[in-house]
């Protein structure tokens, strides 16, 4: 392959023209309605239905949950015990007052605990660990992957614009779909969960958006440069993001979801809510995690531009 030697003004003009024209042609013309899209939509509906049923039963709180390592009593029982104890010690005003204060504060906490329960059980595990990679994959892999599979790459390669501009233009064309689908799905789940969910959405929409952009870059690269890209992307989503991302130790740092969780962990810690003990999410600051995610996105973008420029169209009959 002959690389562009240096960046001349002419190349820059052609690059910008290529990005603009690719964007103009392909923006909002993403392949919607393919089977992956309907499966993703089905998953969203399924999880939304579960979230709605939990919300209907008003279960987004710690009332029925048991403290770690304790069998028998749940948190609600514990508070009732404190209240009963406080009544039994009614003759000692000071102790009784302390017990009342503790039980009152704990009750308030239980009532307001929907946010951590929703975040831990839905956002951290199901959304970040399973749904988000699949939603991003749905559009990102199809960006150039559908052109490869449909053997229509020729129509792009025959244009007098640099291939890098085609790559970047196509990436920018699918990015809105990825972000809208990811944030939209998160918003639907948040609304289904009620106030706890909406609070979680307001707090976490930025790391979710950033994770979507990173996933889009990774999966777009796979779609553009690898054969059987959808299969490889799915394998990555299930093995690296879902499996490794939930493992103890430092293996989880291989997943993009880990850095999103770090940002969420920091954000909720700032509000005094510790989402998960251990797990290493506190080891990365928000800035570091953002840099990591942007770095991964940029790395795959550059790699994609490089390898996409080397593709030769063979045997396209």
């Amino acid at each position: 392959m002959i690389l562009e030697r240096g960046i001349s003004l002419e190349f820059l003009k052609s690059f910008i023209l290529g990005v603009k024209s690719t964007l103009a042609v392909h923006l909002f013309r993403a392949k919607v309605g393919h089977s992956l899209f309907w499966v993703s939509a089905g998953f969203l509906l399924l999880v939304a239905a579960v979230v709605v049923s939990v919300s209907f039963k008003n279960q987004w709180n710690y009332k029925t949950l048991k403290p770690r390592g304790q069998a028998g009593f749940n948190f609600k029982n514990s508070i009732e015990m404190i209240e009963a104890g406080s009544m039994a010690l009614g003759h000692n005003a000071g102790v009784s007052a302390v017990c009342s204060a503790v039980s009152g504060a704990s009750s308030g906490l239980l009532i307001e605990s929907g946010f951590p329960v929703f975040t831990k059980n839905v956002v951290f595990s199901v959304l970040l660990g399973f749904l988000l990679p699949l939603w991003c994959l749905t559009f990102a892999v199809e960006g150039l992957g559908s052109e490869r599979e449909g053997k229509t790459l020729f129509w792009l390669f025959s244009k007098p614009v640099p291939r890098s501009s085609i790559y970047v233009g196509k990436f920018l064309a699918i990015l809105p779909w990825v972000i809208i689908w990811s944030l939209g799905g998160f918003f639907v789940l948040a609304v289904c969960a009620g106030d706890s969910g909406i609070f979680a959405f307001k707090l976490f929409w930025q790391p979710i958006a950033l994770a979507s952009i990173t996933y889009a870059s990774v999966f777009f690269f796979m779609g553009a440069c690898l054969p059987r890209a959808s299969l490889i992307a799915l394998a990555y989503a299930f093995v690296v993001e879902t499996l490794l991302g939930s493992m103890p130790g430092s293996l989880k740092q291989l997943s993009v979801a880990f850095y999103a969780r770090c940002i969420m962990f920091q954000k909720s810690s700032d509000l005094g809510v510790v989402l998960e003990q251990g797990g290493g999410y506190g080891d990365f600051s928000q800035t570091m995690a953002i840099c990591f995610m942007l770095g991964i996105a940029l790395m795959f973008l550059v790699a994609g531009i490089f390898f996409f420029g080397k593709i030769e169209l063979r045997g396209q009959r």
């Binding site: 024209s21 042609v25 449909g150 053997k151 229509t152 129509w155 244009k159 614009v161």
Partner: peptide, 25 residues
């Protein structure tokens, strides 16, 4: 004009040429 017979099947002939012209700058 290649020998391949793969197109953007959901586009019309006019759409195809218009978009290819746009892509060509």
């Amino acid at each position: 004009s290649p020998d391949l017979d793969y197109f953007y099947s959901s586009w019309s002939i006019n759409d195809f040429l218009m978009r290819m012209a746009c892509l060509a700058g």
